[in-house]
Simulated assay, not measured.
Amino acid sequence: MMKNTMNKNIKRIATHVLLASSFTMLPVLASAQEKIPSEEIAQARELVKIFGSDLKSVLKTTMGTAGPIKALEVCHVQAGPIADKNSASSTWDIARTSLKVRNENNAPDAFELAVLQQFEQRKAAGESLKTMEYAETVQANGKTLYRYMKPIPTAGLCLACHGSTLADDVSTKINELYPNDTATGFAAGDIRGAFTLQKIKY
């Protein structure tokens, strides 16, 4: 069963990369935001703030009291439920994704991959991650969706498990929990990934 699941995840990633290769570059944020009501943008921003705070609080507390090994275990078990809890409190679905994922289930779809690449370009051009975001109304499977993304900066706390140099026991634990992990080699200030939200337009 695990082998079949892994094969499906690898196929999913490959499909996303192929789709992204033909994905037209998205318009600039200011133009895209005009397509989504301002109240929806405000809701998405607030949800990202709450979700990020909840997750950071759990990881920071665990890291401080039990160290990075326990923090990895907690993130492995609790990140999904925390996202689900915040999604359930709103009409948005919320998750995380990255150009270098730890959990293969978080691999970006074509839309997310294009936005993540755009975020890297905007950062290279000098834009601040604090104010960077992207929102657009898209059509998918016959439905109109609002989509919103916000980059996640790499903080010092992240480097124990996502940096370029990891302790041996941390590397061992990562390989145990995430055999196909690619989410290392980050430096402070890098784009670790992004919060990604979507909802059906009613």
Rank of each mutant, 00 (worst) to 15 (best):
Q198S: 08
H16V: 03
T24S: 15
A167D: 02
L19N: 11
K201Q: 10
L157A: 09
T24I: 03
I94L: 13
L18T: 14
R102T: 04
V170C: 15
L19V: 01
P81H: 03
N7C: 04
T91R: 01
Q117E: 12
E34A: 11
E73Y: 13
T97V: 05
K130Y: 12
K173Q: 10
H76T: 04
N4A: 10
S57A: 13
T182S: 11
V77W: 00
I82A: 13
E104G: 14
A88D: 12
N7H: 07
G189A: 14
E127V: 12
L116M: 10
E133D: 08
D93W: 03
L145S: 07
K49T: 01
S171Y: 11
S87Y: 04
Y146G: 13
T184Y: 10
N180T: 09
R192H: 11
G156V: 05
I82Q: 09
R102S: 02
H16A: 00
A167S: 02
F119Q: 04
C75K: 09
G193M: 01
T91Q: 06
F119G: 06
F119K: 06
E133A: 12
C158P: 02
I10P: 00
N106L: 04
K143L: 13
N9L: 02
E133K: 09
F186D: 05
T62R: 00
E39P: 15
P179Q: 05
S57D: 07
Q121G: 09
Q139L: 05
I152A: 08
F23R: 07
